[in-house]
Every structure is written in structure tokens, then in C-alpha cells.
Simulated scan of single mutants.
Amino acid sequence: MLHVKNLSVSYSGQRVLSHIDLRVARGEILGVIGPNGVGKSTLIRALSASIPVEQGTVTVLGQDVSTLPTDARARLIAVVPQARALPPAFTGWEVVLLGRTPHIGWLGNLSAHDQEIARLAMQRTDTLHLAKRHVAEMSGGEQQRLLLARALCQSSPVLLLDEPTTHLDLKYQYNLLDLVRRLAREVGLTILLTLHDLNLVSRYTDRVALLVDGRLEALDTPAKVLTASLLSRAYQIPLIVIADRQSGQAAILPASRAS
């Protein structure tokens, strides 16, 4: 579904991402991890063609996204950004309907079909009760789910999420990622997300891409990437990994706090 080949990105002559190769299948969740500044958010922007790439290609369903007009690209890739910047005077319904813009244009008329897609997106994200409320009256968790509903409203096969759990308490972190996993399984979305919390990565992703200094250090299942040796080297801190034999999920802790 999503194919990244030999992708490199530079800012002001400095290489930020170098020769990234990866594929994400339909219905798969790929988690991208790595220390601050290794290029995780840059990767999201490059995949969505928000920034130019130095070399390489990003294709969705065989189409090179860099060659497509903005609306066509948005019909293939939806993005939930790290920073929430929703218009405070907009209602939840108005925010979600913005997701239909790639299909109808800024001045297009919304059909009954468009409105039904928006309603289903809000139903899936448990935001229907926010339809008439203004953004200024919503919590951070409510706004984050609304951004996800807007992305679903685009009807794009690929969903990119940049640190979707930032500033959310534990309840909303798990609720949001439970929803993301259901969307991958039930709707068949191809999902790539960046996360800081390695324990959430272990719990919710199918495969993990570890970035170090802008390069892809490892790409495999959580069990093979979330190892003490790989993570300690990448994050430059001694870590231990405690695996649950039944679930296969891991708990990652600083070695000094293991006891």
C-alpha cells in the first residue's frame, strides 16, 4: 500500500533522513521510534509531500505522491498532525467536514453522501456528541479524536499520525490507540505513526521502524526491534526489556529503575 524507496531529506544543506526504505501493508500499523531529533516528524511530512525530498520516492497504490496535485494526494494520504490548530469557533461537525475538501473542493457543495461519510467518521471516533460544540469548549482528548475523525472523512487508504498521544492522559492514550488499531483491522487502513512511549509501541504496532541519526537502524516486529541492546544503543541510556510470555508485549524500563 505505502512504499518508501531510498528516501533522503535535507534542510539547509544538512541531511536529516538518509536512504529510508520501507513498506507498509493494508491493515498494518507501523510504529516509528527514535530519540528526539532523528527525523520522525520529518518522515511524516516527507511521506505526505508537505516538504520536498532530496531523493527517493513515496508511492501509494503505485502512485508517486510527489507528482500528484494536492487534492489527489489528500485522497490517498490523511495526516493527523502533532500540534492541534483547530479553529476555536468551528463546531465539531464543521471541523470533520473539512476532511471532504479533497473530494469536493473549497467551494463545492456537500452531498448527502459526503455528510454520511462525516457522520460515520464521527461515529467511529466517538465524537458525534461533539458535532454542535465549538472547538474552544473541547478538551485536548476530544480535539485529538476530532482530528482523527477529520482524517477518516478524507476516505484515504493511508493514515499518518505524528505523536497522536502527546498531552493526553493515560485513559485517552489507550482509547485513541485502541481506536487506531480497530481502524486498521476493521476498515483496512494502512497506518504509520510516530510515538515516544515505547511501551505503547510494543502494545499497538505490528512492526517497528527505529530511526537513529536519520537512518533506519532496524525494521521488524516489536519483539525483534524493542530489545535492550538496540534500544540502549539508540537512546544512549541503559534499558531493560521485560517480555510478557503470554501476550508477547514488552515493558521497557531504565536499567537503574528495574528493581
Rank of each mutant, 00 (worst) to 15 (best):
V79D: 00
H113Q: 14
A223M: 09
H103L: 11
T125K: 05
T91G: 13
V180F: 04
L130E: 04
L76K: 02
S156A: 15
T57N: 09
R233S: 12
L226T: 03
H103V: 10
E142I: 06
P238I: 13
V9R: 01
V208L: 11
G62N: 11
P81N: 10
Y204V: 02
S256N: 10
L130I: 11
V65D: 02
S50L: 14
R145L: 12
A72H: 12
A255T: 10
L168Y: 07
K132H: 15
V201W: 01
R181I: 05
P81F: 08
L179E: 06
Y11R: 15
E94N: 07
P164W: 02
L61R: 13
R23Q: 12
P87Y: 05
Q82A: 09
S232T: 14
S139V: 12
L192A: 01
H129D: 12
L86A: 10
L210V: 09
L68V: 05
G108R: 09
H129T: 12
I240R: 07
R233Q: 11
D126C: 12
A121P: 01
V241G: 03
I104L: 12
L195M: 15
I77H: 02
S12R: 12
L179P: 04
I44M: 15
L22F: 15
C153E: 01
A112N: 09
E54H: 05
G92V: 01
D126M: 10
I240K: 04
V80E: 01
R145K: 14
G99T: 02
L219P: 00
S48E: 02
Y174K: 08
N6Q: 15
T190V: 07
T227I: 08
G31W: 01
V158T: 04
R23Y: 07
S155L: 06
R203L: 13
N109V: 11
P81I: 04
L107R: 10
L146V: 08
L231Y: 06
G140D: 09
K171M: 03
L219Y: 13
K171I: 01
T57Y: 06
T205C: 15
G34F: 04
P88C: 11
A131F: 08
V212C: 09
R181A: 14
N6R: 15
I20M: 11
V9A: 06
P69R: 05
A85F: 05
H3G: 01
H196S: 09
R181L: 10
V38T: 15
S50P: 00
K171F: 05
A131T: 07
D126L: 10
A151H: 03
L146G: 05
M1P: 08
L98A: 07
T42A: 08
L2P: 00
P102K: 03
L160N: 03
C153Y: 03
P254M: 11
D21C: 14
S229T: 13
P88V: 10
Q82G: 06
T101R: 11
L97V: 04
N175Y: 04
G37F: 04
E137V: 06
E28Q: 14
W106T: 13
M1N: 10
Q123G: 06
G27D: 07
S202V: 04
S247K: 05
S156P: 06
T165Y: 04
I33M: 02
